[in-house]
Design a protein around this nucleic acid. Sequence first.
DNA 1: TCGTCTTCGTTCAGGCTGTGAAAGAAGGCG
DNA 2: CGCCTTCTTTCACAGCCTGAACGAAGACGA
Lengths: 394, 394
Amino acid sequence: MARPERRTVRDIRRGNRAVLLHTLYFSGPTSRNDLTARTGLSAATVSTMTAGLLAENIVVEAGQVESDGGRPRVLLRVNPEYGFAVGVDMAETHVRVGLFDLEMTERAKVDYVLRPARHDPELVARHILSGVEVVLSDAGVSPEQVLGVGVGVPGIVEPGPDGVIHAKTFGWDGVPLGALLRRGTSLPLYVDNGAKTLGQAELWFGSGRGSSEAVIVLLGVGVGATIVADGTTFRGVSSSAGEWGHTKIVADGRPCRCGGRGCLEAYVGIEAILDRAGVASQGDWEEDLDRLLASESPVIQETVSYLGVGLANLVNLINPEKIVIGGWVGARLGERLLPGIRRATAANSLAEPYAATSIVLGRLGPDAVALGAATLVLEEFLNAPQVARITAAG
Amino acid sequence: MARPERRTVRDIRRGNRAVLLHTLYFSGPTSRNDLTARTGLSAATVSTMTAGLLAENIVVEAGQVESDGGRPRVLLRVNPEYGFAVGVDMAETHVRVGLFDLEMTERAKVDYVLRPARHDPELVARHILSGVEVVLSDAGVSPEQVLGVGVGVPGIVEPGPDGVIHAKTFGWDGVPLGALLRRGTSLPLYVDNGAKTLGQAELWFGSGRGSSEAVIVLLGVGVGATIVADGTTFRGVSSSAGEWGHTKIVADGRPCRCGGRGCLEAYVGIEAILDRAGVASQGDWEEDLDRLLASESPVIQETVSYLGVGLANLVNLINPEKIVIGGWVGARLGERLLPGIRRATAANSLAEPYAATSIVLGRLGPDAVALGAATLVLEEFLNAPQVARITAAG
DNA sequence: TCGTCTTCGTTCAGGCTGTGAAAGAAGGCG
DNA sequence: CGCCTTCTTTCACAGCCTGAACGAAGACGA
């Protein structure tokens, strides 16, 4: 029951502008002539529209290429310095703030360590706000040039303007991070779950590129998934879709830190893996995992099997074109065990959907959460490039 | 990475026409004046557009109501006899063909019994084609008046014009039912999975009405789900999304007829329920289930628990606004055990998404599959009402 | 050097679209 | 009969995309 919405002639312009910008952004330097072919718009429209974008400095010329004997084409591209996006990765142990230009090149970054069990919302908000100031001054970018600030956080983010967060592992239950930040800045804010921003990053710039039906899976301390349907992150009714880590794969199974039993995270989360292997961790999980992988422990094969069950459930239910395995645990497991993971998934999937799915590793490193958060800003920009810039008050 | 598409002024007209028709269809008799308020369109546009729809006989007048002293409003409604839709329920034991007017009132129907293990594609196609002829002549409707034929089938339907079907339980693997039917009729065809057409029916006319983020669950011999995202049935990359019955809830659990182990269907499908209870069925599963429900068997509670796990996985992963339990097994279980099902789901869900979800019973009976199939035709009609009707050749 | 050819880019008249304002229609009421 | 209220239609207008005509820019040969 898709209820369409009323449209007016103006929406057309806005929409076609977005089409043009998307094409320009993802096809790189492109001539007007190419643009007519790629967008399906008429040459006339492309001409007037690019003229506008050039006048606003959103698009710039990028040299010429000769054509077969005729007038050479002028290449156009999105001006990477038209504006900047801030991406924030707020994790359980640190806050990382990055400044990106429109090509998503990182221009500056800064880290703050969070002492465990010291997650005062006010403090975290101050870290983020001062982080924004630091990266801006480091890169010599003024606040007026910033199109927005994206923040990736653990836990569930309520929809709405206040960016209310529920993060059990954090001790946050109903913290309005968005509202706290807005007290200190007037830049547009985008708060989203970190697994979703990582998914956004892999979808736009990593292994998910080009897919419009995909699932990006995050394996780390927590386990989550970003479901992409028709090119857009699927959020569900209250923005908590994708809690894959707490789907049950063993009815009445191992207890999970969420309070439930038999959750996937209770088998393939890093704590669960080490626990099942009987490793008494000294705190450096990455080293522990590497050592475990190097050993011949049967726990590894078990982990692959459980992961296969979890992935197969996604294959059967979601029928994605691609599953991208991300997160640092995912990277390490996938590095050596990808064929086994694929086999385990196949063993638990129906043949048709499995055949339609390719399972690949994520391409982006640990910075992907911040990159994806910044990408939220980019997405907004490409969809509705402002003509009048919002003035930042600070 | 939602790639928007180019638009032209004409798309606006088409789109706004669809807006108007949707509103008219779901709000019942409505005045032009109301329509301006409900659609957001200007009075001028509503006026010219309704004039067109009236001229095409798509919309008809439906009386007047007086206004507070002024000119009375003329009520408009979609002409229920502008066209008709055929809905076909092709199940494991029968083929049912129904003729519906645009209000989805059934005008005629016909049943064909399929002898088990006698599922010759040609025969089934002939049943469907002759069924269409029968309902048309019974209702006195000519083929020119039929907007299309929707068919709900078991198994996976490949996307594409040939309506290729993979149905293990049927012995069909790659049967191009759409192509077979097209040899016998030139009416527009819509072939879809039966669980999805049932979902479509509940979404449009049953308990799911008004929800745009919902899951409609089918419990019967098979177990499946229709995932509705943003008002539209989610199909995945190869149209097999929603195979909920074969998601695993017990790693390495009971064997399932799909060849896998631990599938939800191997616990809450009717065969599994009876098998777990040790009932040696004489063939009448409905009676067997009723007897089992009347007994105090612990298998019932177990079933509720397993179902709760399966539903909780949907809650966590999809975060729907509503879960509708359909299918004849679902109806019988839900009738007495709905509170227990809700409790079992809550016990296995995260608090936030569970709080956002209401779990309700389906409202439509066994005819819902055919009704939903016809609704595929209706949906197409409301989105793009033809001006020039396609001529049927027969 | 000049004219021609090829290709790219821009301009312009024209047809659609939705809109606001003004005009028209239809009934109630004194 | 005239006025009032309310619903509906008409009309001039601005915005949009488009095809066709026109202009621009280089290659190339004479």
